[in-house]
């Protein structure tokens, strides 16, 4: 049964808010990295917000998510609290992983958020297993697996596509094709650059969608998920997108031109939706200001929460290396 995407005021307002929350949260993260509150590797999602927001909008609460190290967007869109996320980036024990994971390793049991994987391609087999578990246990859930174009170079992509197809598993493979894997341009890494096309070799249905258009992503994700639930088979959704900022916080971006970045910035998913909403009169400027105000307050509160957070006692260092029981 196709769940329609309702392009009404409430829904569009929600989509814009979801993307703006990610954007503003990460702008703050950038500042906090400069002031060394956040350390380690941090990968921002600037420009790619429509992908996680559009896809996660199509998920149900019982569905699972597997993500990469560039997962702030998925985490926020999925409903992991901004406070817990920010505290995690600070390394505080109030963080969603008690400060042990940091930016690259966000996990959340309540929302079936299975990480936060910083090994390129590492999440794909886990998504296959998550879907296998759901299938065998008779849960009517799907697993959405996010990964970059770079992960397509890894054997695990190909093995996972085949396993999911062979075992007829409900996996939505979401390739965030932002055209680069660090400095490696897609056309220098793959002989066949149309990622969606590769699915055919595994008899997996697929579609490529404009990843800068949140409504298009949501519609495509809903269609894909309907198909997954109907046929009990995986689906590959290639979202064509772009990251506006550096790969991580240490990247001189020698591999791409400023002009190229500007061309893509003109397609900014947040700006696109915002100006369309303003032009059509679906959302007025003062309502957007109001949303911005609420988000700014939420981000400030998250920073205050993280600042007030505490360091896990060093005596607890070895806790959780192994578990006494399987958490229920």
């Amino acid at each position: 049964m196709t769940e329609k995407v309702h392009l009404d005021h409430a829904h569009l307002r929600h989509l814009l808010t979801a993307m703006l929350r990610i954007r503003r949260f990460e702008e703050k993260c950038f500042e906090l990295y400069q002031s060394e509150k956040i350390r380690g590797f941090m990968h921002l999602y600037d420009g790619e917000e429509a992908v996680s927001v559009g896809v996660i909008e199509a998920l149900r609460p019982e569905d699972a998510i597997v993500a990469t190290y560039r997962e702030h967007g998925q985490a926020l869109a999925r409903g992991i609290g901004m406070n817990a996320l920010m505290a995690e980036l600070y390394g505080k024990q109030e963080g969603c992983c008690r400060g042990r994971g940091g930016s690259m390793h966000v996990f959340d049991r309540a929302t079936r958020f299975y990480g936060g994987n910083a090994i390129v391609g590492g999440g794909l087999p886990l998504a296959v297993g998550s879907a296998l578990g759901d299938k065998i246990l008779g849960r009517n859930a799907i697993t959405a697996c996010f990964f970059g174009d770079g992960a397509v170079d890894e054997g695990s992509f190909h093995e996972s596509m085949n396993l999911a197809a062979l075992w007829k598993l409900p996996v939505l493979f979401v390739c965030e094709n932002n055209l680069y894997a660090m400095g490696m341009a897609l056309e220098r890494a793959e002989a066949e650059t149309r990622i969606a096309v590769k699915a055919a070799a595994y008899r997996v249905a697929s579609e490529a969608v404009d990843g800068m258009n949140v409504v298009a992503v949501e519609v495509a994700a809903k269609r894909a998920i309907d198909e997954i639930r109907r046929a009990s088979e995986p689906f590959l959704l290639e979202c064509r997108t772009y990251r506006f900022r550096a790969h991580s916080m240490f990247d001189a971006q020698l591999y791409r031109s400023k002009a190229e970045i500007e061309t893509w910035r003109a397609k900014d998913p947040v700006m696109q939706l915002r100006s369309w909403l303003e032009q059509t009169g679906l959302l007025h400027a003062d309502e957007i200001d109001h949303i911005e105000g609420e988000i700014a307050a939420e981000v400030d509160a998250a920073v205050a929460f993280a600042e007030a957070g505490t360091w896990e006692p060093v005596e607890d260092l070895e806790r959780f290396t192994t578990m006494d029981r399987v958490p229920q």
């Binding site: 994971g101 940091g102 690259m104 910083a118 590492g122």
Partner: peptide
């Protein structure tokens, strides 16, 4: 030593 966590 660079706070890159458990996979780096």
């Amino acid at each position: 030593g660079l706070q890159l966590a458990a996979q780096h």
